[in-house]
């Protein structure tokens, strides 16, 4: 399993042709207490860089963009009742959705963890 990151602070971990997407620890810290997350329904087609989910804190709302293109296979329904999972476990139980990748080559344009960490360090 390998993990990739975007400049918009999403992560995607890929196993075979299925990816799991969430927002990074940096992103959840920047947003603060997450109070609401809206995840895409199964079967929805998403495109790389396009709107896929919404995440909200008390004073901010952000789009979550899909790191790659594909078809959603599952949304994380647990977030509806427990949006705090995004704060508590951004790269674990706080995932947003899973998708079947339509163009795995898109992964190559993303950062690996080391590159992402450098990128974040540069923002601070």
């Amino acid at each position: 399993m390998s993990m990739y990151f975007t400049k918009d602070h999403e992560w995607i971990s890929v196993e075979g042709s299925v990816g799991t997407v969430g927002i990074t620890d940096y992103a959840q810290k920047a947003l603060g207490d997450i109070v609401y997350a809206e995840v895409p329904e199964k079967g929805r087609k998403v495109t790389k860089g396009g709107d896929a989910a919404v995440v909200e804190s008390v004073k901010a709302a952000s789009e979550v963009y899909s790191p790659v293109s594909g078809t959603v296979t599952a949304g994380n329904d647990a977030l509806a009742g427990q949006p705090a999972l995004v704060n508590e476990s951004p790269e674990g139980d706080g995932w947003f959705f899973k998708l079947e990748l339509s163009n795995p080559a898109e992964l190559e344009e993303l950062m690996d963890r080391a590159a992402y960490d450098d990128y974040v360090a540069g923002l601070e």
């Binding site: 207490d33 109070v35 609401y36 909200e56 008390v58 705090a84």
Partner: peptide
Amino acid sequence: RRRLDETLAAR
């Protein structure tokens, strides 16, 4: 009232 829990209100 002192500071109010806006996170709770929204969650």
